[in-house]
């Protein structure tokens, strides 16, 4: 029986993440937890997150989870970052006048800007980027198994990750310009969208995570 730890640092709704894992996971124990031992003992870890980066990183650090996450990543076991959980993996975010993040992946998190326009129509684009958009897979990866190229996933965010190295880009999405909607490095995979809110394709992604051995 394998185990997944969903890291709970008190930010937002982990119910849906846990339920999605339950739905696709057979013989999987799911821990929603902030306990270092439980996290480090798990076979896999999901790092979720909603809300403001300053609050998220503040809680991660206050609970000592920054060290735990680093240690887990160093172990080589698979880690899946979701939404703010993806952004937190980078070095810093422009949100809340600048927040230092975990620095597991090189790069920054940037604001979409308030004067974003559609490339084709010239229409004003709203912030947050909210709704179902297409995810263009830039690499082959076990996490993309059985998921259609350009499948739609549910997004809600105003900031986006800008990895320092293009090799880290696992998928891109258009919103005024192409931005990085998934990143991958060794045993770390992370997405900007919410797979737990993305119906079949999202559940498939969680199912792939439960099968993934952490090797890309």
């Amino acid at each position: 029986m394998s185990s997944v730890a969903v890291i709970d640092y008190g930010m937002g709704n982990l119910h849906s993440v846990a339920k999605a894992l339950e739905k696709v996971g057979k013989d999987v124990t799911i821990h929603v937890t902030a306990d270092a031992e439980t996290i480090l003992a798990a076979d896999r870890v999901v790092l979720p997150g909603v809300g403001a980066m300053r609050d998220c990183m503040g809680e991660i650090v206050r609970l000592g989870l920054d060290k735990v996450i680093h240690e887990f990543v160093d172990s080589g076991k698979p880690l899946f970052g979701v939404c703010v959980g993806m952004q937190a993996l980078l070095e810093s975010s422009a949100e809340n006048e600048g927040v230092r993040c975990l620095g597991i992946l090189p790069g920054q998190v940037e604001y979409f800007g308030s004067d974003l326009t559609d490339m084709k129509t010239g229409d004003k684009l709203k912030i947050p980027h909210m709704g179902w958009n297409q995810v263009h897979q830039e690499i082959e990866h076990p996490m993309w198994d059985g998921i259609a190229q350009d499948a739609r996933f549910y997004f809600v965010h105003s900031y986006y990750a800008q990895p320092a190295n293009p090799d880290l880009i696992a998928a891109s999405t258009n919103y005024g310009f192409p931005f990085t909607s998934a990143v991958s490095k060794d045993n770390v995979f992370a997405v900007q969208f919410h797979p737990e809110k993305s119906q079949h394709s999202g559940l498939d992604l969680y199912a792939n995570f439960l099968k993934w051995d952490g090797k890309s």
């Binding site: 709704n13 119910h15 849906s16 999605a20 739905k23 809600v156 919410h194």
Partner: peptide
């Protein structure tokens, strides 16, 4: 609903306090 339907859910009506919001989000509302 949130245990079985994996798309975004909004709950309106009767949301008057911060605590009302926390309870709904924890229950699975987005």
């Amino acid at each position: 609903v949130a245990s079985q339907v994996f798309i975004p859910l909004t709950v309106g009506g009767g949301i008057r306090k911060v605590e009302d919001i926390r309870v709904m989000l924890n229950a699975g509302a987005d």
